[in-house]
Amino acid sequence: MTRSSQPVRAHISEFDDNFERTLRRKRKVPEPSPPSSSSESKFEEKEEAEKDMEVDNRTIKELSASGLDNATPLCIQYPAAARGKTEEFELKSSLLHHIPKYHGLSMEDPNKHLKEFEVVCSSMTPVNVDGSILKMKAFPFSLLEKAKDWLYELAPGTVTSWESMKRAFLEKFFPTSRVILLRKRISGIQQEEGESFPTYYERFKSLVASCPHHQMKEELLLQYFYEGLLPIERQMLDASAGGALVDKTPTAAKTLISNRALNAQQYEGVGQRSNPRPHQVNEH
């Protein structure tokens, strides 16, 4: 080995000692790891939540009413779909456009609303969709103002089927007091002087239809109709029956009344003479 190579070897050994000591020191102190994506996302969510809390200055009333038109009422719990049907579907805009609206006002007829609603839904329900679930999902869109407020104020789990939905709706907007009033009107119906038999019959049918849960038997309804007739009309109806109408079965009596009303309506006004025009002194 030459003399000039000895200083080089000394420098190399000194470098190696320093390098090893530095490496051992760095291994004892781990380098800081970069922030993970999960921690970053949590931090961002926290910032957004704090930002929303700062910006949202709505009152309690406004917060309670927000989303009322789109949120599903907590009172509704959908049942399992019938076999061969699906409960996963989208309410079409065409259906929502045609369903009737109910505001909960005293002059509105809740029974009529239910009938019209069921007719629209039945005619626009896809073949593979459970019709009862479709009605439960579409019914909130038919309610406005007071009626919608009532639905969203019901206790959670109140409605579990379409039948329970109708029952709760009628209990609210068609109370027992109204049923009692209509029952009295049905039982006390009277044909007015000058009122034709067809007109009286239609008025009676409309009154009965306005209270579908009157809980009156058919023979009792026919008795009320018969007793409310004018004496001359009652005699004519008995003559058509070939005796007393009450001796007929309810089905036969109902058919007889319906046929007589139809025939009288066809020939109503035929053979009746109008009042003669008064003669004037200088007419001739």
Rank of each mutant, 00 (worst) to 15 (best):
D52G: 01
D52R: 14
D52L: 15
E54G: 02
E54C: 04
E54A: 13
E54W: 05
V55N: 04
D56Y: 02
D56Q: 04
D56N: 13
N57L: 12
N57S: 13
N57K: 15
R58E: 10
T59L: 08
T59F: 03
T59Y: 03
T59S: 15
T59W: 06
I60S: 11
I60A: 13
K61Y: 09
E62K: 11
L63G: 02
L63D: 01
L63V: 05
S66A: 15
G67Y: 06
G67D: 06
L68N: 12
L68M: 12
D69W: 08
A71V: 11
A71N: 11
P73S: 09
P73L: 04
P73T: 04
L74E: 09
L74G: 01
L74M: 06
C75G: 00
C75L: 02
C75S: 14
I76D: 00
Q77K: 14
Q77M: 06
Y78P: 00
Y78N: 01
Y78A: 00
P79A: 09
P79I: 06
A80Y: 04
A80F: 06
A81L: 01
A81I: 02
A82N: 03
A82G: 08
A82K: 12
R83C: 01
R83G: 00
R83S: 13
G84A: 07
G84S: 12
K85N: 03
K85M: 11
K85T: 13
K85C: 10
T86K: 10
T86F: 01
T86W: 01
E87C: 04
F89M: 08
L91W: 07
L91M: 12
L91C: 05
L91I: 14
K92S: 14
K92T: 14
S93K: 08
S94E: 14
S94Y: 02
S94K: 12
L95I: 14
L96M: 11
H97P: 00
H97R: 15
P100Y: 05
K101P: 00
K101M: 08
Y102N: 03
Y102R: 01
Y102C: 01
Y102S: 02
H103T: 13
M107I: 07
M107H: 14
M107Y: 14
E108Y: 10
E108H: 09
D109I: 05
P110F: 07
N111I: 05
N111D: 12
N111S: 08
N111T: 03
K112I: 03
H113T: 07
H113S: 04
L114R: 04
L114D: 00
L114M: 12
K115H: 09
K115F: 09
K115E: 13
E116W: 03
E118M: 06
E118A: 12
V119I: 15
V119Y: 10
V119S: 06
V119Q: 11
V119T: 14
V120C: 08
V120H: 02
C121F: 02
C121P: 00
C121L: 13
S122C: 06
S122T: 14
S122K: 13
S123F: 05
S123H: 08
S123C: 07
S123W: 00
S123R: 14
T125G: 02
T125K: 13
T125Y: 03
P126C: 06
P126G: 08
P126M: 08
V127D: 14
V127L: 11
